[in-house]
């Protein structure tokens, strides 16, 4: 089980679905949902100070106010501190190859996943982060 996962997405329907799948596959124990990326950013900054970071972030791209890209740009100054402590996957409805291409430029981004989150991907997370967790 992944100790903590952040879902950052303004689409409530999508958030529910993702959370449900992670729970269903028993992939994560603590799932926090942020409809506003700004709030997620604050939580990460606070978590960094208190040594309390999520293990995985599932980030949507198309959001009002602060979108996925802007969120990643805002995290860039913290990149060194965050590397190896958390993994970010983009989980988007976009099937635009340009977006996937663009995501590769961010070293914090570990992967580009199309919505919806599949059971297989949830299991993969579970295995990956579970091993880490066991250590």
């Amino acid at each position: 089980m992944i100790p903590q996962v952040f879902i950052i997405d303004d689409d409530e329907m999508s958030c529910y679905l993702t959370r449900f799948m992670l729970k269903l596959q028993q992939a994560a124990s603590d799932i926090v949902t942020y409809f506003d990326a700004e709030e997620a950013l604050k939580a990460i900054e606070t978590g960094l100070e208190q040594g309390n970071l999520p293990n995985l972030i599932l980030l949507d791209l198309n959001m009002p106010h602060l979108d996925g890209w802007e969120f990643l740009d805002a995290l860039a100054p913290l990149e060194e501190k965050l590397t190896n402590k958390l993994k970010i996957f983009i989980l988007t409805s976009s099937v635009d190859p340009y977006d996937e291409e663009r995501s590769r430029a961010y070293s914090l981004v570990s992967g580009f996943l199309p919505k919806p989150l599949s059971a297989e991907t949830a299991n993969l997370f579970k295995q990956q982060f579970g091993v880490n967790n066991n250590e």
Binding site: D11, M13, M21, L24, N62, S93, L117
Partner: peptide, 21 residues
């Protein structure tokens, strides 16, 4: 890719869940 695909992705996700519940 964004506006149209978002509800489709959701619909896909929920349809998938129906099989699992």
């Amino acid at each position: 890719s964004h506006n149209l695909r978002a509800p489709v992705a959701n619909a896909l996700g929920y349809t998938d869940l129906l099989y699992r519940v």
